[in-house]
Amino acid sequence: MKRTFKLMAVFICVVSMLSFTGCKSNKQLNERLIIQGVGIDYTDNQYNVTLMCMDTVQGDEQAPAHTILSATGDTVLDGVTNAISKKGQEPLYSHNLFILLGDAIAKNDAITPLNFFVEYYETRPTVYVFVGDTSANAILTAKTATPQGIANLAQTQYTSGRTITAQLYKFIEDSMSKTQSPVTTQLTVKNDEVQVSGTVVFKDKRLAVTLDNEESLGVLLATGKGNLSTAVVELEGQSQSFTLSNVKSSIEVSSTDDQLIYTVNVTGKADLYEGRIGGGAGKGEVDNKIRWLIQKAVTRTVNQYKTDVLSMGKLLRQKNYEFYNNITDWDKLLKNSRANVVVDISVE
């Protein structure tokens, strides 16, 4: 009886496994449309979607190739569906590396087109979000643009500190906050090559300001993310470089009715290079340079454009919840805010 029951159970398991999707409706990888990059533009009330898809026919492991598919639609999913209908293959979104928003859509509404990627079951929350200084289509169709090459540009934040990159879940999370301003990398095309051109800051779903390399570095330093970044100290006759490590920062925020007063404390270690024998920069110059970078960044982002890139709103939410809950004019607080930057870098 026991043996019969076991055999019956095994038989039922085998039979039921045959009906699983993996056995019944299996598709080989080269029969799927593997989407590696998505570009979204918006013109004439239509979403123009550009897909970078893996070309499993032309490419191989040593020289991966990709194809470009473009189409328009009333929604992002509509545009994607129209694009993939040109190939007739079932799309695979789980290998998507990035989402690139065109400049027009970034200036109008950057969040609505991302809702599809937040809600669709196959997409991943860790894809990078980029913004182009021109249309997404123009960037993705650049001669030397590849999906992996574009995705690797996100590492610029960690290798040089010239930009700040957000992943989808972080970007959306910041956009949902009533005070926080989402930031991410801006891309451009120069000499047919896709490059990083700065950092964009959003406010109320729209692009508010574009930061250059120095301002991006200033924001990274103020938020304690400036490890391995490099900067230049201008000296009389010759400039000198330094790299930073062990960067830590803390921000203390206090508030009155119509002003935020915040202190940014930055510590770390700097290694100086390209020095002159018998002279060169020292701790004082490095501290001054970092202070200048941070001050430049916060003056532009916080005071001028009233964007909270330093998470001061979240800090207030933690430390003074009552005040945070009763904020009526956050813009006014940011505009009138006063920063005090304290830097203490040890120089090697």
Binding site: F5, A9, I12, C13, S16, M17, S19, F20, T21, S25, Y121
Partner: peptide, 26 residues
């Protein structure tokens, strides 16, 4: 069915789980 694969048969999946669990309970 909502997050992994909408085309999957929920009944067949449940059947497999229940069979294994019944054996465990047995």
């Amino acid at each position: 069915t909502n997050l992994l694969n909408p085309t999957i048969s929920a009944f067949v999946l449940s059947l497999a789980v229940v069979i294994a669990a019944v054996y465990g309970a047995y």
